[in-house]
Design a protein around this nucleic acid. Structure first.
Lengths: 252, 252
DNA sequence: TCAAAAGTGTTCGCATTACACCCATGG
DNA sequence: CCATGGGTGTAATGCGAACACTTTTGA
């Protein structure tokens, strides 16, 4: 079986994927429990070895689907992690990606037994150098969100302004003033008010505090007091137009 | 000699390095002429295969020194380039870095025969996917320079405001108003006026239009008319202090 | 003395910030 | 009716953009 021979030693190449989600309160990351050594039983980022005929991105997407049932198209490369002893078995270079997932995508498709959403703020120790990778991903997300409308990838298609605000607060780790946040987002010109679909409104509201990590939740979410928020959605076309004109002036 | 055998095919892992320089007028990139197939005779980024006991960054630094005589410490990873057929010989994944070099560093140390600085705006076709990598590096530099004081890595320790401005204009591809540029840079609080060392002033001025690519220049640079600029230098400590307080508000 | 480059201050508009009251809903 | 959360406007401030004349120097 030892079939592949080279004149010089070759490292193995793997990919790992940081998938982030948001449940209306806090950021989560999608982890899998390792079933084999090394780090058997520990939590790790989904990922695996790259095939010889696929790109790193294709690999990351395939491994993610295999291990978590999620098929995401918007993977962003974080970079290569190349510490010499990051894997005790052999020299492994990992190319890491990050991606954002919506509640809906997950609730529909995730049937992998070992995959779980874990609160970013209360993580177990992770296998390999995955803490480092995750940390990089968070830094990257915090940088990106200020200039590109990436945040919308974490919300349902239609969302309320307070939901959006909570997302920004969870990512950036600080509070914003409601009125100013509102104003700024609307001024950016990439949101449009959704048709006042009463059903959507109610659904969104009742699900606001659903924990997306609790895939087998038994408790029905119960409505909260308080006024409903108006629904908005992200206007990708407006953003594309804006980006052409501005090109590097856009800030979020 | 075929000594290294694995159960599964392993790609080769290489690094490539985009070294950028500035001669007072325009951006240059450091290229080497390939002496072997494939792409023999074509220009390429300095780089080479990673050893099994070094990190990608160590590899990039070593290869850069071997091929160009430059020893740079501030390499920034751009990411991994993993197109399946980017190298016709075998599957090669390249981890790319970018770095900035000062005129002085180059004039002192570069004794590699085949390395040359080439104008960014008039590039020959490059080997492999090195055009893509270079393009990424430029995008990255343009993004970075707006938030971090990276530009100073391309100038001598002491420089004039117009020099700094020309650098920003070359990188970002647009013109700035002298007065506004001045004001903004001083307000940023990371520059301090250098002692009015007359010699330094004159030297800087006379060298302003030296072409750093012309390593064997025979023509002496001759002085230009026009007023001399005041000398400034980058205050790394002030920047470090500022970064701690602000942390994510800094814009350049 | 002329040409080329550098230094300097003010005004205007826009974006960001701080801040307080009323409205809608469910329990 | 009360608790919870959502919606809205205004005033002060700071930053970026536009803009012209004077000074220094080398030829």
């Amino acid at each position: 079986m030892e079939n592949y021979t080279y004149n010089y030693p070759h490292p193995a190449v793997a990919t790992d994927c940081v998938v982030l989600g948001f449940d209306g309160e806090s950021l989560k990351v999608l982890l899998v429990e390792r079933g084999v050594e090394p780090y058997k039983g520990a939590w790790a980022l989904p990922g695996g070895f790259m095939r010889i005929d696929e790109t790193a991105e294709q690999c990351a997407r395939r491994e993610l689907a295999e291990e978590t049932g999620l098929d995401l198209s918007n993977l962003h490369q974080l970079g290569a992690f190349t510490a010499v002893h990051r894997d005790p078995r052999e020299r492994v270079v990992s190319i890491a990606f990050y991606a954002l997932a919506r509640q809906r995508d997950v609730r529909g498709g995730n049937d992998a037994a070992k995959a779980r959403w874990v609160e970013i703020d209360s993580l177990p120790p992770l296998a390999f150098d995955h803490d480092t990778i995750l940390h990089e991903a968070l830094l990257r997300l915090r940088r990106d969100i200020r200039f590109e409308p990436v945040g919308f990838g974490l919300l349902d298609e239609s969302f309320t302004m307070p939901e959006l605000q909570r997302l920004y607060e969870a990512i950036l780790g600080r509070q914003f003033d409601r009125r100013n946040f509102n104003k700024k987002m609307l001024q950016a010109g990439v949101l449009h008010a959704a048709a006042t679909d009463s059903a959507a409104t109610v659904e969104s509201h009742t699900m606001r505090r659903m924990d997306i990590g609790d895939l087998f939740a038994s408790e029905e979410p119960h409505s909260q007091p308080g006024r409903r928020g108006r629904q908005f959605s992200f206007d990708a076309e407006a953003y594309a137009r804006m980006k052409e004109d501005d090109d590097m002036k856009t800030e979020f």
